[in-house]
């Protein structure tokens, strides 16, 4: 699966969709790291995510850690209820910057 990427201001926005599990998270990881390699600030749109497992969360964590190492912004956008539950349960909602919509992001 190839996730769509578009540019918005200084950010690249990757939209993850459906089930981000052990099968799909390698592609998500690849696209996240590809954008960061280009030194792009990154927003991950999770509004269409129906399920995310720990491998999917690990892709986000790796993106987050890599972005921090490069002094780039990394945030989650419009996190779906299913994804938010997982993040909240693991207290990762306190780790990732989360925005309800693109309008809330300081572009």
């Amino acid at each position: 699966m190839k996730y769509p990427v578009h540019e918005h201001g200084k950010f690249s926005v990757i939209s993850l969709t459906g089930e981000v599990d052990l099968n799909c998270s390698p592609q998500a990881r690849e696209q996240i790291l590809k954008c960061l390699k280009k030194n792009n600030h990154l927003l991950i749109d999770l509004s269409a995510v129906e399920y995310i497992d720990s491998s999917g969360v690990a892709s986000l964590v790796e993106g987050f850690q890599t972005a921090r190492g490069q002094q780039l912004q990394f945030a989650l956008l419009g996190v779906s209820k299913a994804a938010l539950q997982v993040l909240q349960l693991a207290r990762l909602d306190k780790v990732f910057p989360i925005y309800a919509s693109i309008d809330d992001v300081d572009l």
Binding site: F64, L89, A90, L92
Partner: peptide
């Protein structure tokens, strides 16, 4: 970051002990 621990009293009442910190390694 772990799912909450469940504290059960002998009378059947239960309490959830939620995560207060993110997972290790993040």
């Amino acid at each position: 970051g772990n799912p909450p621990a469940l504290l059960f009293s002998p009378d059947g009442l239960a309490r959830e002990l939620d995560a207060q910190a993110p997972p290790l390694g993040v």
